[in-house]
Simulated assay, not measured.
Amino acid sequence: MTTSERMKMAAGEWYTCIDPELEELRVAARDAVFEHNHLPPRQRGDIGPALRALLGGAGEGARIEGGFHCAYGFNLFLGDRAFLNAGCTILDTAPVRIGKGTLLGPNVQIYCAEHHREAAGRQAGLEIAKPVTIGDNVWIGGSAVILAGVSIGEGAIVGAAAVVTRDVPANATVVGNPARLAAHR
Results as ranks from 00 to 15, higher is better:
I157M: 13
R185K: 15
E60Y: 06
G12A: 02
A50F: 01
H36A: 03
G125P: 06
R52Q: 07
A183S: 15
N171R: 15
M9C: 01
R30L: 05
G67A: 05
E118C: 01
R6A: 08
S151M: 02
E13T: 04
P40K: 03
G67L: 08
A28M: 05
G149N: 10
I146A: 05
N107W: 00
G59Q: 00
G61Q: 07
P20G: 04
V27G: 01
P169F: 11
A179H: 08
T89H: 14
L84T: 02
V132N: 05
V96P: 06
L51F: 04
G135N: 12
V164S: 13
T16E: 04
D46W: 05
S143A: 15
E13S: 07
G56T: 01
A86V: 14
P40Y: 00
G101D: 11
E65V: 01
V163C: 08
C17I: 03
Q123G: 02
F83L: 09
E127N: 08
P95V: 08
K130A: 13
C70I: 02
P40V: 04
I47F: 05
I64K: 10
A124I: 02
P49Y: 00
G135T: 09
R97I: 15
A179N: 11
L104T: 12
I98C: 08
G153H: 04
P106N: 12
A62I: 10
I134H: 04
E154F: 02
A10Y: 03
V138I: 03
E114K: 06
G99T: 14
P169G: 14
A179C: 10
H69D: 13
A119Y: 10
F68Q: 07
L181E: 15
G142V: 01
S4T: 14
A86I: 14
V96D: 04
G59I: 07
V174R: 09
I64V: 07
G135I: 11
A10Q: 07
L103G: 13
V168L: 11
G45R: 07
Q43L: 05
A82N: 07
G142Y: 04
M1R: 05
A148L: 09
Q109R: 12
L181H: 12
S143E: 13
Q123W: 15
L84D: 00
G142N: 06
L84R: 09
A113H: 04
F83K: 01
E154C: 02
Q109E: 11
V163I: 14
L181T: 15
L54H: 04
A71Q: 10
G105E: 10
G67H: 05
T173Y: 10
D80H: 11
P169H: 11
A179S: 13
E118Q: 10
N37F: 06
E154D: 15
A29K: 01
V163A: 03
I128C: 13
V108E: 07
L84K: 08
E21W: 02
G159H: 08
R26I: 02
A129V: 06
H69Q: 13
